[in-house]
């Protein structure tokens, strides 16, 4: 063991970057090994897709559900991976141990966000693969890439929501509360079926939901939603993200102050 006491030390940028990369790497490994997470986040959209998305001579439904279930996978990856993940580490005292270490603060959040986004990409890639092979639909390279890019960017607003959930939801009831929020949200945003098939009152409130705007962007990739409204959807998602981050930040700072 060296006797040197680092009296003055500002961690160099490469060292910080190494910590961020390690944090992301191990968070992803941890999520993959946590079967309750990896199997349900990847499994649910795939099973639903096999059941409802692969009806013969109905390429419309197949393509609709690639986009819809892709969004659904993204949301569950972020809300369970980030929301529940942080809530549990906080309750167990593990977050405190990491916080006492010199871990770059941003590394922790970045790791959660990137890992969840990676799961969303896996889900979307698998959905496209199944749709093309078993469903026989055509998905152009450009459509596939646009959908994947959307999932990547779409992980940001969900990360913000997940962070707020992590700060407020007690971890023991976490899964229940997250489902209670997320299942109705998915349904009312048209992840599972076109909005025109839903009750009128639901159609009326859908535009108030951030998930609706994400779904519209995803559906527009396959021409199920007008591309003209894209700017509005992006603005709403950006506004929602800022709102969630601000609420999480205020909560966090207030608690730091009490500490």
């Amino acid at each position: 063991m060296s006797d040197a006491i680092p009296l003055t030390f500002e961690p160099a940028a490469p060292a910080r970057l190494r910590a961020v990369v390690r944090e992301i790497e191990y968070e992803f490994i941890r999520l993959v090994r946590t079967r309750a997470f990896s199997l349900s986040v990847i499994g649910f959209p795939l099973v639903f897709f096999l059941l409802f998305g692969l009806r013969a001579h109905d390429a419309e439904t197949t393509r609709y559900l690639i986009a819809g279930y892709g969004c659904f996978g993204l949301g569950s990856a972020c809300l369970f991976g980030i929301g529940l993940g942080i809530a549990m580490e906080r309750a167990q005292g593990w977050l405190e141990l990491k916080w006492a270490s010199p871990m770059p603060r941003l590394a922790y959040l970045a790791a959660k966000m990137v890992s969840s986004a990676a799961f969303a990409l896996i889900v979307t890639a698998l959905l496209i693969g199944l749709g093309v092979t078993l469903g026989g639909v055509t998905v152009t390279l450009s459509q596939g890439l646009r959908l994947m890019a959307l999932m990547l960017v779409g992980s940001v607003p969900f990360t913000a929501l997940g962070l707020l959930i992590a700060l407020w939801v007690p971890p023991t009831s976490g899964p229940g509360i997250i489902n209670l929020i997320y299942i109705p949200l998915s349904f009312a945003s048209g992840f599972w079926m076109p909005l025109r098939l839903l009750p009128h009152w639901l159609q009326a409130i859908a535009p108030a939901l951030p998930t609706y705007h994400l779904a519209q962007l995803a559906l527009a990739v396959f021409g199920f939603a007008p591309r003209a409204g894209a700017l509005t959807h992006w603005l709403v998602l950006a506004g929602f993200t800022l709102l969630m981050f601000a609420a999480a930040w205020i909560t966090f700072v207030r608690r730091e102050h009490q500490a």
Binding site: R22, E23, Y26, I29, R30, R33, Q92, G93, M103
Partner: peptide, 24 residues
């Protein structure tokens, strides 16, 4: 610290590698 539970899924070595990466 007194930790109620440690994330189960990483090995001792992986967790050590992770914490090592935080230090200069």
């Amino acid at each position: 610290l007194q930790v109620a539970r440690v994330p189960d899924m990483l090995t001792v070595r992986e967790q050590i590698e992770l914490f090592r990466s935080y230090y200069p």
